[in-house]
């Protein structure tokens, strides 16, 4: 079980969190899970769209306080 890598993109706006996530996704291995932290509501809606379009896997989305925790598994 590979560990979850945290990608902290709090306090930036669309498309900053998505770009941060993509940067780390490229470095990750297939099967790795990344947890994107974001304070941007728009990104919480938009990131799952990107994940689906690119064929990766959404693990889950949860809002804790003001921060969205968006977990994504690299599928290919």
């Amino acid at each position: 079980m590979s560990e979850t890598k945290i990608v902290d993109a709090c306090n930036t706006y669309c498309p900053g969190p998505l770009m941060e996530l993509i940067t780390y996704m490229r470095q990750a291995d297939v099967g790795d899970t990344l947890e994107l932290l974001s304070t941007d509501q728009g990104s919480a809606d938009d990131v799952p769209e990107w994940v689906e379009k690119c064929g990766h896997e959404m693990v889950g989305t949860e809002k804790i306080g003001e921060i969205w925790h968006i977990k994504v598994r690299k599928a290919k």
Binding site: P15, L18, M19, I22, D46, W50, K53
Partner: peptide, 9 residues
Amino acid sequence: MIASVSAAC
């Protein structure tokens, strides 16, 4: 924004 998001997709 359009360039980066569409390229990333």
